[in-house]
Simulated scan of single mutants.
Amino acid sequence: MTYLPPLASPVRRIGARTFDFSRQVAVMAVVNRTPDSFYDRGRTFALDRAVEAALAATDAGADWVDIGGVPFAPGPELPAEEEAERVVPVIRAVRAASDVVISVDTFRAEVAEAALEAGADVINDTTGIHEPGLARAVARAGATLVVTHSLAAVRGHGPRTPYPRPQYGDVVTEVAAFLEERVAYAQALGVASDRLVVDPGHDLNKNTLHSLELTRRLSEIADLGHPVLAAVSNKDFVGEVLDAPRGDRVEGSLAAAVVAITRGARIVRMHNVREAVAAVRMTEAILGLRQPAYLRHNAGDADE
């Protein structure tokens, strides 16, 4: 039996695009304008490379492009002004060329405000709203906010805090409770319920067993009633399961995304866009959420 998440507001207008998350899954591409991103190691750090990668992703079928200027992993602090200088030119260039949904991966209110003014539609905050001003900026712009779980947020520590041996009693129950509380906080700060997305934060202060458990029981996160973003692409939990380095995790990432969709994910954040789009569209068809592109095989007067 197909699990369908109990979405309070399944139809969402995000930027120039409308999504019916009761019947479709959005593919979010990843563009990191950082010299030290965990996956591409600076391949898209140069402005022209970042813009080129974002537009190539839209050509490959991505519904959404997520632009980041600072990695989640611990490291030296980057001033907000410099982070904005990394992401804003990419936003402007992509917005001028495409109506694709643009999100910016940031935890800073100042960066979020600059990104929204430049044309971003979504703020993807991996710290569970560390800065209240970020949610207020999203609310003022009528934009969408992704609320993500991480232990740094749970324990009130600053972003990019290391947790070498994260501990949970029941990781799914604890993540769900945190997301529910932070969604209420976002609403108290002015973000409308139909502008919220939740992300359980695969691998963010979690070990491989935690991330596998979250994937297996993702329906418990989807039961919160908000679209779930599953950021599973090329993560370390995929690598550890398959004993695969970063460049060899495509198949495992696709498998994780497909399972997440069957458990209620409605946005998947993926690096390998062409392969991800094909896997997602096939999964939608198998689940009865979309029709095939065409029907020819054994559909005419003669067998094929």
Score class of each variant (00 low, 15 high):
88 V>M: 00
207 N>Q: 13
108 R>F: 01
277 V>C: 05
64 W>R: 04
186 A>T: 06
73 A>V: 15
183 V>E: 03
99 D>H: 12
165 R>Q: 15
27 V>C: 01
62 A>M: 13
274 R>I: 09
283 T>P: 05
225 G>N: 01
67 I>A: 03
161 T>K: 10
295 L>M: 10
11 V>F: 10
150 S>M: 14
113 E>G: 09
147 V>T: 10
221 I>F: 01
121 D>K: 05
283 T>K: 00
194 D>L: 03
173 T>R: 15
130 H>W: 12
295 L>Y: 11
296 R>D: 13
179 L>V: 02
152 A>H: 06
109 A>D: 07
115 A>W: 00
258 V>S: 03
194 D>N: 10
199 D>N: 07
272 N>R: 05
15 G>W: 02
136 R>V: 07
186 A>Y: 02
118 A>Y: 00
299 A>D: 10
80 A>I: 11
260 A>M: 04
275 E>I: 08
52 E>R: 14
32 N>V: 06
86 R>K: 15
274 R>F: 05
218 L>N: 00
155 R>A: 11
44 T>Y: 11
169 G>L: 14
206 K>C: 08
203 D>T: 01
269 R>D: 00
4 L>Y: 13
160 R>I: 10
239 G>C: 08
10 P>A: 09
149 H>E: 00
122 V>R: 01
233 S>G: 04
225 G>F: 04
202 H>S: 08
46 A>E: 14
46 A>V: 02
